[in-house]
Each structure stands twice: as structure tokens, then as C-alpha cells.
Amino acid sequence: MGFRDVASAVTVRGLRKSYGHVDAVRDVSLNLHEGEIFGLLGPNGAGKTTLLECIVGLRLPDDGEITVAGMDATRRAREVQQRIGVMLQSTALQDKITPREALQLFSAFYRHAADPAQLLEQFSLTDKADATFDTLSGGQRQRLALAIAFVNRPEILFLDEPTAGLDPQSRRELRDDITRLKKDGRTVLLTTHDVDEAERLCERVAIMDGGEIIATGEPRALAAESSTMQSVSLSTKPQIDAHRLTGIPGMVDVVSNGNWVTFRTPDARRTVRELTALLEAGGIELLELHVHRDTLEDVFLRLTGAENDP
């Protein structure tokens, strides 16, 4: 192994992990900068959780190198675990344990531990400190899981689908908690299949699909870089047939949907000019017209093939 990037909090190179004949992670490399919130975005089954679990030491990779906080994560796992915090996709605890006991228990295993009472307050769990785990709501359980990830004052946090399955209120609270991490200067690796969440929380994202990383970058840049196309949608009176538009240069993916026709074009200005000329010549009134650039979601859907799913 041996490589070390001072500015990198986490470095993964050539990671592979298979379950039988299924390649869950295929030759993945990525680099997390210190102090950034990095999102692993992908549909279910993309390999995000397997990748995260390999990094935090829950799974042994078949091949590849993982460096966390400058240490080889597979050979110096215990030292790495002293310095990282992990929130798993579903953190279950014993039914009858209380948040206070859970935090006291987990903090007892670390050299440098946070005060459990402080964590309870920080994550708005003071009122539920002595309630048993089986009486906590989904949001309270997730906040407790996040608090547990904080018991050792970690430099790097790994959060696997932290807001999955939560109601909107709980989701917003948890996102606020994560946003605060950014202010504290902690490094966070966050997996999610929620594009909006990734766009709001993450400074950089990697899109995973089929066990591979297919795109990496800042959410807006990714959207801009990944596509030079713009989407156009219009409504007319009377309704226009989509096949009448096929002669306009640069127009692709023309689709009729009720009163609306949508298409994509690399040069929206020219295409729209020719389109309006065509409509005037045909005596067709243009009611509405919208032009917009691809969002991260468009990029995500297109790259992962989800937009073509039924």
C-alpha cells in the first residue's frame, strides 16, 4: 500500500467486492477531501452501502486499497475506528436500552469520548434520554444513531442513507444536524438515493450504478458538464403533432404528452427561433414555452438509466 494524500481524509483505490457471482463494487476509486461533505448517490443496489461498509471495516474487500485519516483501513482497523463515526442505514439497538445507556455504553469503548449528556442535548434527545429504544420514533432513533456516531468526537463521519424512511419533519431536522457538521469542519461521506438531499448537503457527489462510479464532481458542475443539452417544453393552440417538429435542426427526443410537447436541443436559441417561425407559418398560437438546463436529477436519471424505467 503506502500512498498517502495529506489533503485527503479518505482515499479508495481499485476497490472490488463480490458476493458469490455478483460484483457489488467494481474497481471503485474515490477521494474525500478533509472538511468536505461528499455524497455517494445512486439507486438502490448500486453498491453504495457495500462501498461504505468496506471503508469502515464492516466488510473485507476482495481487492483494492483504503486509506482513512492517513492509515491503511484494513491493517489498522482499530486505530481507524477510534477516529471515525459511523451511522449505519438501520441502527438497531436492544429494545429495552435507553438513549442515555446506549451513549454511555458506546462512549466507554473509545479513548476520547464526548459527554453523553451533551450529545443528548445536541441531538434533541434529552427528553427521551431514559425512554427505552422500542418507544422511540423513527426520527428519534436516527438521531440517536447519529449521536452514537459522535461519541468519539470523530474526524470523519460515514452516514449511510441517514434520512431514509423518515417523515418530512424528521428529515429536515436530521439534515440540519448534518449541515452543522459542515460548519464544524468535519469530513462526511454520505450515501443517499435522494438527489435533492445530495444537492443540498454535499459539496461533491459521486454517482454510483452497477457497482461503479460513473460520475464525480460538484452537483452543479456535474449537471453542467455532463450535458450540453437543454430541455424545451411548449404548449400550443391547437395542439401540434410532434412529427411536424422533426424537421427542425438540433431537435431530439421529441415527445408529445397531452397538450405539451417536449424535446432536447444543444442550441435552444436557434431551435426556438425556428420553432416559432414554423408555428406562425402554420397559424398555431404558442401558449407557453419553457427552456431549462439539466439538473443533477436529470443527470442522475439519465446516467443510471432510471428515466427509462417504466
Binding site: 464492516l58 438497531a92 439497538l93 436492544q94 473509545y110 452514537i148
Partner: peptide, 11 residues
């Protein structure tokens, strides 16, 4: 339940 899976992350 996954309790021991969580324990495994402790050093």
C-alpha cells in the same frame, strides 16, 4: 436486530 453489527464498528 443488527446490534452486534454496530458493536463491530467499535475499536
Amino acid at each position: 436486530k443488527g446490534v452486534w453489527r454496530r458493536y463491530r464498528l467499535m475499536p
